[in-house]
Write a protein that binds this DNA or RNA. Structure first.
Length: 829
RNA sequence: GCCGGGGUGGCGGAAUGGCAGACGCAGUAGACUCAAAAUCUACCGAGUGCAAGCUCGUGGGGGUUCAAGUCCCCCCUCCGGCACCA
């Protein structure tokens, strides 16, 4: 009978569900394991990337369940966000309806794959029972001074009609729609993630090494971007203003020839007010020209540097000289102080700027074994370390020492103050969108911005809303929702119509999995403290500096407010590669996608799971190949056919024969193969997460079973042992077919909860070893000898071997290197 | 520009410093079949040889070692991240 994967897969999915095989419960007496996958956005259908992510997770979950761990394995939907609004316009539906319909369909797809989720723990972020806790957390952050509103130039995406956090701008473009981002001056809500910058950085080395890939740790380290230096002041007496600047190279202070301000710097307005009409016009013109540049134009390192010379001067803190103040497009308002000390001889950007505008260049560092540069003729800045020059008493110091010595001196004389700066910016959390968590604040004319009292949560998002293509949130068109009363004074007030960044939702959903039905709290601490932190997290690398930083911050915050007992949420991280077809990432726009549903209906879930795990190691990109799918399908057919064709014999011979009772050498070898497989597959799964090699070993065992042609009593029992091991080890990958065969063989316990096999060390012992004989490092002979020979005995045997003797005949043996049971290398002349 | 990670048959990929290419795909030959599909068996890095074998071979060049895909140095190249962050 050919294998009917549809019938078998459906059968076991129902049986597992009826028997609650995958439900998990907090149990302090058992060792837990939390296996987590990045939950999907309900875009409409699963794609191969999801299938890959979740197939990896399911194998880990099933494997550990069989190894006696209390496994938490759940799924949910990250279901707020833009696409629902776009779809609502396009298909004339409601974001709420569209989203829930997609969740429904994708749930069916996930179930069809046979993933062993505990569906009781599902979290859906767009439902009030979930997002009310977003609002509650937001208020807790507010109480602790971590939430603030600020008017600032923020990243604005025109196509999405909303602002974006810094992390969500990639190469100057929106991470979601890839349109260029512009800067807009807007009043927005921020979360002070920068308060945690140092700890986020420190814990990368302390807690995430080696559980996280090096690549991700480095990306986060760079993103946080710590730099040490000093802050100094240039007094501007004319304007009664002190310009502050941050520098990492205070040792170049004698090389300052100009000061540059970001066009958005507050001093720019002050200066403009002091200028006459014509000058002010010119300044305005310049500022407008720069702000009209998109982020890409302005922030590209190769972009042309533009400057405007103001008629004002700052006083050099050390030399007392007058330093001209410029406004320049390459100065960023949101890093450091938005102003710099310009040192053209030591900074390439400043150098280019000075050459363009004829600002003098004063060399202050010379190469260790070179001459002092000539400021007039040097062709580029000298940014390397060297020897201090043209700097009075400090001349001759090495840069390494000068940085420290000169800041010490600067601090003592009040020229500067040590300071640490981070690239990481505060998390811009508000979005001018409808489909998100309402920010729980109201605006009152008398009381100002007032938080919604906790007992009034949730602030419900109206669901019955028509989204139209107008440039603003539909919430603004709902007076019934928008108009409310002030919780403080009771007078009419207006709700905040901005919603939260959806990364807020995804920063704690895994905590909710631990405690999914709590309606008094976001979660029960005892549950979360039992299950968390996540033991294995699996997801895409694209979240390295997005979700994975936000979630780390959130964990630290929850610990600070006493809700949890840990500060890092994810102990181990596995970043799976992309699914590639025809050399490019599968994507709708390229039209190279493969629909999982189609492929599952053609080959079955077991085959798809197996292929996707076999074709490449998890962190590599994976090239889709239907031939490859057919290959693993063929392998499963071989397993099925073998058991079916030999069913009676396999059922009748179910004794485990100890190695000691096996006399026949080939049978001992077969027994060894079985236990070798157990040992190696187990190691592949635990240590390396090398699913591809684990599967290869199971294919080898299958090949060995097919070619093992003995037919005595011992052999027949060994065949059964081999098949049991094969099915057991294969079951995390292909749970349905193996479960069916397991039952056919007469087992009464479900395979999915049957203990993982243990290798019998006695069966692994070899009586003989094939010794590779090398002569001068080249393999020349292979000699079969008893295992366990001492070095002397081994050399003696080898040197007396006829074949070896004839090869070294007449030559001088200079040296012999022996590796017992493996190799002898004879060096001759 | 800075920082990471790679480069192994026709392809995806294996190899605690100790037999390079496990396993799979593709390919070749054969068996079964009227035929095909499916299945099974064998072969399957290059060169050379009737053969046993021999030589070469893990991006290139040097080095360490009895022994290097693996360790060290230099270079080429591909991919990824960041990018005017003071």
């Amino acid at each position: 009978m050919p294998y009917d994967f549809n019938a078998v897969e459906n059968k076991w999915q129902s049986i597992w569900q009826e028997n609650k095989c995958f439900e998990s419960h907090t149990d302090n007496s058992k060792e837990k394991f939390f296996c987590l996958e990045m939950f999907p956005y309900p875009s409409g259908a699963l794609h191969m990337g999801h299938i890959r992510n979740y197939s990896i997770g399911d194998v880990i979950a099933r494997f550990l369940r069989k190894n006696n761990k209390n496994v938490l394995y759940s799924i949910g939907f990250d279901s707020f966000g833009m696409p629902a609004e776009n779809a609502a316009i396009k298909f004339k539906t409601k974001p709420h309806d569209w989203t829930l319909k997609n969740i429904d369909y994708m749930t069916q797809q996930l179930k069809r794959m046979g993933y062993s989720y505990d569906w009781n723990r599902e979290a859906i972020t767009c439902l009030p029972e979930y997002y009310r806790w977003n609002q509650w957390f937001f208020l807790q952050m507010y109480k602790r001074g971590l939430v603030y509103q600020k008017e600032a130039p923020v990243n604005w995406c025109d196509t999405c009609g909303t602002v974006l956090a810094n992390e969500q701008v990639e190469n100057g473009c929106c991470w979601r729609c890839h349109n260029p981002v512009t800067k807009k001056n807007l009043k927005q809500w921020f979360i002070k993630i920068t308060d945690y910058a140092q700890e986020l950085l420190d814990d990368i080395d302390k807690d995430l090494d080696p559980g996280w890939p090096r690549r991700v740790r480095i990306m986060q380290t760079n993103w946080i971007g710590r730099s040490e230096g000093a802050r100094l002041k240039f007094k501007v007496p004319e304007l009664n203003y002190d310009i502050e600047a941050f520098t990492t190279r205070f040792d170049t202070i004698y090389g300052v020839t100009f000061i540059a301000l970001a066009p958005e710097h507050e001093l720019v307005k002050i200066m403009r007010d002091k200028l006459n009409h014509d000058e002010a016009e010119k300044l305005n013109e310049f500022v407008q020209k720069v702000s009209a540049q998109s982020s890409i134009e302005r922030s590209d390192a190769g972009a042309e540097k533009l400057g405007f010379k103001t008629p004002f001067y700052g006083i050099h803190p050390v030399t007392g000289k007058q330093i001209p103040i410029w406004i320049a497009n390459y100065i960023l308002i949101d890093y450091g102080t938005g102003a710099i000390m310009g040192v053209p001889s030591g900074d390439q950007r400043d150098f280019e700027f000075c050459r363009k505008y004829n600002i003098p260049v004063i060399p202050v560092i010379k190469p260790v074994d070179g001459e002092i540069f000539d400021g007039e003729t040097m062709t580029h800045a000298y940014e390397e370390y060297g020897i201090v020059c043209n700097s009075g008493e400090f001349d001759g110091l090495k840069t390494e020492d000068a940085i420290k010595i000169m800041i010490d001196w600067g601090e003592k004389n009040n020229y500067c103050k040590r300071e640490v700066n981070f690239k990481l910016r505060d998390w811009l959390i508000s979005r001018q969108r409808y489909w998100g968590t309402p920010i729980p604040f109201v605006y009152c004319d008398d009381c100002g911005v007032v938080p919604v009292p906790e007992e009034n949560l949730p602030v419900l998002l109206p669901e019955d809303v028509e989204v139209k293509e107008v440039g603003h949130s539909p919430l603004l068109d709902l007076p019934d929702w928008l108009n409310t009363t002030c919780p403080k004074c009771g007078k009419p007030a207006r709700r905040e119509a901005d919603t939260m960044d959806t990364f807020f939702c995804s920063s704690w959903y895994f905590d909710r999995y631990c405690s999914p039905h709590d309606d008094k709290n976001a979660f029960e601490s005892s549950d979360v403290n039992y299950w968390m932190p996540v033991d294995q997290y699996i997801g895409g690398i694209e979240h390295a500096c997005l979700h994975l930083i936000y979630a780390r911050f959130f964990a630290k915050f929850l610990n600070d407010i006493g809700m949890t007992n840990f500060r890092e949420p994810f102990k181990n991280l596995l970043t799976q590669g992309m699914v590639i077809k025809d050399g490019a990432k599968m994507s709708k726009s390229l039209g190279n996608t493969v629909d999982p549903t189609e492929i599952v209906s053609k080959y079955g879930a077991d085959t798809v799971r197996l292929f996707i795990l076999f074709a490449a190691p998890p962190n590599n990109d994976l090239e889709w190949s239907e031939r490859g799918v057919e290959g693993v399908n063929r392998f499963l057919g071989r397993v099925w056919r073998y058991v079916e064709d030999n069913l009676e014999s396999l059922k009748a011979n179910n004794k485990i024969i100890p190695v000691g009772e096996i006399k026949n050498e080939a049978e001992r070898e077969f027994k060894r193969k079985i236990h070798d497989t157990v040992k190696n597959v187990t190691r592949d799964l635990i240590d390396e997460k090398q699913f591809n090699t684990a599967i290869a070993r199971l294919m080898e065992l299958t090949n060995a079973i097919y070619t093992f042609n003995f037919d005595d009593d011992v052999a027949n029992n060994l065949k059964r042992e081999a098949v049991d091991v094969l099915l057991n080890c294969l079951s995390p990958f292909c749970p349905h077919m193996t479960e069916e065969l397991w039952q056919m063989l007469g087992h009464e316990e479900f395979l999915c909860v049957t203990a993982w096999p243990v290798a019998d060390e006695k069966a692994l012992v070899r009586e003989n070893a094939v010794i590779v004989v090398q002569i001068n490092g080249k393999v020349r002979e292979k000699v079969n000898l008893p295992a366990g020979l001492s070095t002397q005995d081994l050399e003696h045997e080898i040197l007396n071997n006829d074949a070896v003797k004839s090869r070294i005949d007449g030559k001088n043996i200079i040296k012999i290197i022996s590796v017992p049971d493996k190799l002898v290398n004879i060096v001759v002349k």
